[in-house]
Design a protein around this nucleic acid. Structure first.
Length: 207
DNA sequence: GTGTCGATAATCT
DNA sequence: GATTATCGACACG
């Protein structure tokens, strides 16, 4: 049916990748039930590397936590923050060009019942994946998934994957660009329009 | 619907 | 010891 997006998809300009990810599907193979969980990517943010004051690799920052961002494209960069949340990015561009796209929201499509068991507080479908830490919780993604190759079909040892749903990116008229969320500290980089979402989606971080 | 605030621990200084 | 690419609870109306 659908195939994983190839490495070449991710080895491009990060803004191009961010926009082209909208409408593609992030899935995880759940080890306990051996079923797929996931949804369509509807909101993302681009992080542009050593010059981007909001990026974890700003000023060529390179520590064990961000090592994945320095590696090859098409891998999952997962980080832990605020003492309780995980967020997932997709690496872009070649090794040593440490850029990535943060996945901020999904329109859940596969295995909503499993998502509800993981997201105890969720009352309705739009509570499941409408935020970067909500979707990792819904899919059961944590630090053990760091550096997973996203270009291979899901297996127990590489359970994350992004499937190609669309051949081409949505036309610009379908995509809204705004400043990124939660990066007010980033000075002149804070207002840059590097957050992208699908217009009219019902599953965004803030409606 | 909007706004404020506290939780909580990996990571780095 | 400080910081954090967030969330949910609660207040308000």
């Amino acid at each position: 049916m659908h195939s994983p997006l190839p490495r070449s998809f991710f080895n491009r300009n990060t803004i191009t990748v961010a926009r082209a990810l909208l409408g593609q599907k992030l899935i995880r193979l759940d080890p306990k039930t051996n079923t797929l969980v996931g949804g369509l990517i509807i909101e993302v943010e681009a992080y542009l590397g050593p010059h981007d004051k909001a990026a974890h690799t700003y000023n060529h920052h390179r520590t064990p936590r961000v090592e994945t961002m320095w590696g090859p494209p098409g891998h999952a960069y997962v980080y832990f923050t605020y003492g309780m949340h995980h967020c997932m990015n997709v690496t872009t561009r070649p090794a040593d060009t440490p850029q990535a796209v943060l996945i901020r929201a999904l329109a859940p499509t596969d295995n909503l019942s499993l998502m509800y068991t993981r997201r105890k507080k969720a009352k309705r479908d739009r509570d499941l994946c409408s935020g970067p830490a909500k979707l990792t919780q819904a899919l059961g993604i944590d630090l053990t998934h760091g550096n997973t190759d996203l270009t291979t079909p899901p297996t127990p040892y590489s359970p994350l994957c992004i499937l190609q749903i669309r051949k081409r990116a949505y036309p610009s008229s379908h995509i809204v660009a705004t400043p990124r969320i939660g990066v007010a500290y980033a000075e002149e980089w804070a207002p840059k329009p590097l957050r992208f979402y699908l217009r009219h989606s019902q599953h965004l971080t803030t409606p």
